[in-house]
Design a protein around this nucleic acid. Structure first.
Length: 646
RNA sequence: GCCGUUGUAGCUCAGUGGUAGAGCACUUCCUUGGUAAGGAAGAGGUCGUGAGUUCAAUUCUCAUCAACGGCUCCA
């Protein structure tokens, strides 16, 4: 019997029923057959060896396809497991999936420890096994047989996995001496894996739950050629160069000190400049958007956090209370309750709404020691916070305006690699992780979703990521080394208004509770500046750059002129410094470039005579000579527009 | 908090069971030089902290603190 196979370009070809993807690939070209890793058959990724029983659509997956890579790395995880089993007999396996950049396998090594040296031995073994070009063989197996196999092996993890599977849908994959319970698919054989690097050993809780046993996780990455591995390793080196922890030190932005404490950054003068510029931007923007600024204390009595309901959800990540005269005070981990108290301090009418209270609020969170990460995860943070109190009718417009503010900011900073995430509750955790108001959750989630759809903002929805008091939109970004963080957040709160007994008088002379929006478009100074350091690779745009102009005299003869240039620039509100060290101009330029000064103003005899400077742009080179007035006009324009000249 | 790794000068890093070295930075001197490193000399460290083993510990062992790679968690 013959079947019809259609290809992505619309072509249709006839084959015998039961033809394999590999045979189809070979019928097209030998080259394709050599490189193809898997096939998407009727939309599902299949092994190339799997027979195609009836008419189907097919698309060949190669290394360039993300599904091709995943398959390649998943097979690499099996290859690693085979090597582990060869070197550590008796090991028990949990799961070994592909990830963003490579793969891992979780395993229980019993009492044995695995070290960096073992990784070298494992890599060697993997290379040996890869060279054997073992085929990955798929076998459908009954549940009872599968249970029998892993019972005999004593692998309770695989048995646990089997419990959740349906008889008839269970498959085993075997390559060489290694057999694994696996849904597949896999690449044709291990010989395609040419370059192997095991990248790390880590502990990982079984099933991701910290109450469970910790398994050993080995990470690795593989490639179809050594060249690609080398490129990947070079790329990692590049990423490290833009790590905000490295740049922050090099540029004098922030530091940590053991005596101050972990996670408590000290902002150095250059960091303080960036902070002040960001606050200036936020204050201007919020002023335009009708926000009012407030200032509130960093501590509050326990009673307030009992009222707010934060204590049961948050206590673990708050610094322990200080007790004075029988009263407990907490360092605040969030600003909202303080702002609610300001709302509540005066009688409110519907005419006062929406009321938007803004503050760059300082908060303290006792994050677990292992969670700290440079500026991205700290224990003292300054939040670009504001709370908007509004009626239900005003909610959509207010929420939309907040989103527009996000987009405006992202435009200014050129932030385009992010994902908007609509973070929802999990009905199973109502009353524990989330306020137990099922209807309100559903209603407000729909409101937020609607705003996003109407604003044409692409977003993804994720369950079990909401705040305890309502759904939120998080802006997700990635650090230089690939870690994911929430940069900014826009949250709905239908719970705290009631808990604080907040109210306003409606037009109908009745009392109602306002809805609250919590928003932090610039997140916290800590995370935002950490992000910006990496985003700009240290090259801040002029308006944000602590080093706007470095005036560089050719020799000491021009030092006085250089100082007068700098003071003119400073008078015009431009940050300028003179490098009057006894060094050659080449060296001064090199160092100013490395410090990412936006501009360098070189002054020598010619410039001094004509009241000019030779202007040089960081990363671009000499722009030619111009008068000091012209430089001031140009730079002031760039600064006030917050946009660098191209 | 958990698993693993690391901790030597301001920074980046060598090194050793017999109380330490390089490059850059710093100080001084020479040089006054036109768009990414001019030359010389000098100063600087109780080798993260505490205990143990040893005739002797920066080096070996243990504990502790911190950082890093993950897990969990999160702005």
């Amino acid at each position: 019997m013959s079947i019809q196979i259609s290809f992505p370009d619309g072509a249709v070809r006839q084959y015998e029923a039961g033809v394999s993807g590999f045979e189809v690939a070979k019928s097209i070209s030998e080259g394709l057959a050599r490189h193809v890793l898997a096939a998407r058959v009727n939309g599902e990724v299949w092994d190339l060896s799997r027979p195609i029983p009836s008419d189907a659509t097919i698309q060949f997956l190669k290394w360039e396809d993300s599904d091709g890579k995943s398959t390649f790395w998943h097979s690499s995880a099996h290859l690693m497991a085979e090597a582990v089993e060869a070197l550590f007999p008796g090991v028990k396996f949990w799961v070994g999936p592909p990830v963003e950049r490579g793969f891992y396998y979780d395993m229980d090594l019993g009492d044995r420890k695995i070290s960096e040296e073992d990784l070298v031995a494992l890599e060697k073994k993997m290379k040996e096994l890869a060279a054997a070009k073992s085929e990955f063989i798929r076998k459908v197996i009954s549940k009872s047989e599968a249970v029998e196999y892993f019972s005999a092996k004593g692998d309770e993890y695989k048995l646990d996995l089997l419990q959740g599977l349906t008889d008839g849908e269970i498959t085993f994959y075997t390559q060489g001496n290694f057999t694994d319970l696996c849904r597949g698919p896999h690449i044709p054989n291990t010989g395609l894996i040419k370059a192997i690097k095991l990248t790390g050993i880590a502990g990982a809780y079984w099933k991701g739950d910290e109450k469970n046993k910790m398994l050993t996780r080995v990470y690795g990455v593989t490639f179809p050629s050594q060249k690609e591995l080398d490129e990947y390793l070079a790329m990692l080196e590049e990423a490290k160069k833009r790590d905000h922890r490295k740049l922050g030190k090099e540029l004098g932005i922030f530091t940590f000190d053991d005596d101050v404490g972990p996670g408590l950054p000290l902002w150095m003068p250059n960091g303080a400049i960036v902070i002040e510029e960001l606050e200036k931007l936020a204050k201007e923007t919020e002023e335009d958007a009708g926000y009012k600024r407030v200032v509130t204390p960093h501590i509050a009595k326990e009673s307030m956090y009992i009222t707010s309901g934060h204590l049961p959800y948050y206590q673990d990540s708050m610094y322990p209370p200080m007790e004075l005269e029988g009263v407990k005070y907490y360092l605040r981990a969030m600003n909202c309750p303080h702002h609610h108290k300001i709302f509540d301090a005066e009688q409110r009418s519907y005419k006062d709404l929406p009321l938007r209270l803004a503050e760059y609020g300082t908060c303290y969170r006792y994050e677990q020691s292992g969670e700290l990460f440079g500026l991205m995860r700290v224990r003292c943070l300054h939040m670009n916070d504001a709370h908007i109190y509004c009626t239900r009718e005003q909610f959509a417009d207010e929420f939309r305006a907040v989103n527009d503010m996000y987009l405006k900011y992202f435009g200014i900073f050129g932030i385009d690699k992010y994902v908007m995430r609509l973070s929802l509750h999990d009905p199973a955790k109502l009353g524990q992780k989330y306020i137990n108001e099922p209807e309100l959750w559903i209603e407000t989630e729909a409101m937020v979703r609607q705003v996003l759809i109407e604003s044409n903002i692409p977003f993804i929805e994720v369950a079990d990521e909401g705040a305890f008091y309502g759904p939120k939109i998080d802006v997700q970004i990635w650090s230089a080394i690939g870690r994911e963080f929430t940069l900014a957040t826009n949250q709905v709160d239908f719970a705290q208004g009631r808990r604080f007994n907040l109210s306003y008088t409606t037009a109908g002379n009745e009392t109602d509770v306002p809805l609250i929006i919590h928003r932090a478009p610039l997140g916290t100074h800590e995370r935002f500046i950490g992000f910006l350091l990496e985003h700009y690779a240290g090259k801040f745009p002029l308006w944000l750059n602590p080093r706007q102009v470095k005036v560089l005299p050719i020799s000491d003869k021009f030092a006085d002129y250089a100082k007068s240039v700098a003071s003119q620039l400073k008078k015009a509100g431009i940050r300028a410094e003179v490098d009057d060290r006894n060094e050659k101009i080449g060296k001064k330029i090199r160092e100013a470039e490395l410090q990412r000064a936006s501009y360098m103003a070189v002054v020598g005899e010619k410039e001094m005579e004509q009241g000019q400077v030779a202007l040089r742009r960081q990363g671009k080179g000499d722009l030619g000579s111009m008068t000091v007035e012209a430089v001031i006009a140009k730079l002031k324009n760039e600064i006030s527009s917050r946009r660098d000249d191209e």
